[in-house]
C-alpha cells in the first residue's frame, strides 16, 4: 500500500458528516496545545500512545500476567484476593494420568479428551485446509475468465460469523436436511450426522475448512501472482514440463507464503471454538469437545466451575500458541530477508 492522494473529498453528505468531527477535533486543539507546551513535541508521542496502551495494558497485559496467579489458586471465587493459593496443584491435576493416550485413566479426563480431540482435529483440518486452499489458489491463478468472481466465490464464507456458519451447517446436516435429501434422492439411506461420533467430528473439520479456506486461498494466490511470469516462459524455452515447473519453480517460490499459511492455520485450529460450539456443542458426548470449549466450560459454564483449572489449561494452550507464533515470526523474518536480497 502506498500513500495515494485521496480523490476530491466528494459528496455533500460526506462533507456534512465531517462537520461534527471538525468541531470536536478543533475543540480539543486548544487544551492539547497547552499539553504540548507542557510536554514538548516529543512528549506528545506519549500522549498519542497512551489510550491504546492503557486499554491494551488493562485488557490484555494484565490478564496475561494474572493468569499465572489464577492457575496457582483453587476454589470457585472469582476475584484473585478471595482465592486460596494451591501452588501447582491444578497443573498436577491436569497431568495426573496413568496413561496419557487414554483419557479415562486421567483424573481430569475431559481435559485429555479435549486435548486428544484437538490434536486429531488439528492434524486433519490443517492438512486438508492446506491441500484445498493450495489447489484452489493454483486453479484461480490460471488464465481464467472472471477470476475475481471465482475468487469471491471461495472467499464468501470467510466473512460470515461463526454462529451463522454453525447454524447453516446444522440446518443442512440435520435429519431432514439438505444432505439427507441428496442421499435420499440417490436412493441412499439418510443419516443423523450430528448424532454420530465420527460424522460429527468430520463435520467440524469440514465446516471449519469451508468457512476459512477462502482466506488462505487468497494469501496463497497473492504469493502465486507475485511469481514473475517470465520464469515460466524461460522454463518453457528450456523445455521444462509443467509438472516439473510446478515442483521446481512454483513450490519453492511459494514456500514463504505457504509456511506462513501453515502456521496461521495451525494457530487458529488449536483455538477452534465458535462454529463448533454452535454446530455440535461439543457432542455427541464429548466427541467434538475441543480445548477452548473445555476452558470455557471449566471456567464459566459448569456448575462446579474451577477458574484455576481453566487458567492452568489456558496457559498450557498459550505455550503451544507462543511456540507456533514464534515459528511464524521466524519464518516471516526469513521471508523478509529473502525479499531484501532479491
Amino acid at each position: 500500500m502506498k500513500a495515494n492522494v485521496p480523490r476530491r473529498s466528494g459528496s455533500g453528505l460526506g462533507e456534512a458528516a465531517m462537520v461534527p468531527v471538525r468541531l470536536v477535533m478543533g475543540a480539543v486543539d486548544a487544551p492539547l496545545r497547552w499539553v504540548q507546551r507542557r510536554l514538548g513535541i516529543g512528549g506528545m508521542a506519549t500522549f498519542f500512545l497512551l489510550p491504546n496502551m492503557l486499554i491494551f495494558g488493562i485488557f490484555v497485559l494484565l490478564p496475561f500476567f494474572i493468569n499465572f496467579a489464577y492457575s496457582m489458586t483453587g476454589g470457585t471465587a472469582l476475584f484473585l484476593p478471595d482465592r486460596t493459593f494451591v501452588g501447582t496443584e491444578q497443573y498436577a491435576r491436569l497431568f495426573d494420568c496413568v496413561n496419557y493416550a487414554d483419557p479415562n485413566s486421567c483424573t481430569e479426563d475431559t481435559f485429555w479428551t479435549a486435548v486428544g480431540n484437538t490434536a486429531w482435529f488439528v492434524l486433519l483440518q490443517v492438512s486438508l485446509m492446506i491441500l484445498f486452499s493450495l489447489v484452489t489458489a493454483l486453479i484461480l491463478n490460471r488464465d481464467l475468465m472472471a477470476r475475481s468472481f471465482w475468487r469471491a466465490v471461495f472467499f464468501f464464507p470467510v466473512l460470515l460469523s461463526p454462529v451463522v456458519v454453525g447454524l447453516i451447517w446444522k440446518w443442512i446436516l440435520q435429519r431432514q436436511g439438505l444432505l439427507n435429501f441428496g442421499l435420499y434422492s440417490l436412493g441412499l439411506e439418510p443419516h443423523t450426522w450430528l448424532n454420530d461420533r465420527n460424522w460429527s467430528f468430520a463435520a467440524t473439520v469440514g465446516v471449519s475448512i469451508w468457512a476459512h479456506m477462502g482466506f488462505y486461498t487468497l494469501i496463497l494466490l497473492a504469493g502465486l501472482q507475485a511469481i514473475p511470469k517470465d520464469l515460466y516462459e524461460a522454463a518453457e524455452m528450456d523445455g521444462t514440463r509443467p509438472a516439473r515447473a510446478f515442483w521446481r519453480i512454483t513450490l519453492p517460490l511459494l514456500m514463504p507464503n505457504l509456511l506462513v499459511v501453515v502456521v496461521l492455520v495451525l494457530i487458529r485450529a488449536v483455538q477452534i471454538f465458535d462454529e463448533v460450539y454452535v454446530l455440535t456443542g461439543g457432542g455427541p458426548g464429548t466427541s467434538t469437545l475441543y480445548l477452548t470449549q473445555y476452558i470455557y466450560e471449566t471456567g464459566f459454564a459448569t456448575q462446579l466451575r474451577n477458574p484455576g483449572l481453566a487458567a492452568a489449561a489456558s496457559i498450557l494452550m498459550g505455550v503451544v500458541l507462543v511456540i507456533l507464533t514464534l515459528v511464524q515470526l521466524g519464518l516471516g523474518r526469513k521471508g523478509e530477508n529473502k525479499g531484501a536480497r532479491k
Binding site: 491494551f56 494484565l62 490478564p63 496475561f64 480445548l291 476452558i295 470455557y296 487458567a311 500458541l321 507464533t325
Partner: peptide, 18 residues
C-alpha cells in the same frame, strides 16, 4: 499480543471486566 488470544486469557479477563 498476537500471541495472547482471547482463549488464553478469558478467565482473568473476565475477573478484570467484572
Amino acid at each position: 499480543t498476537l500471541m495472547v488470544p482471547l482463549s488464553v486469557i478469558m478467565v482473568p479477563l473476565y475477573s478484570i471486566v467484572s
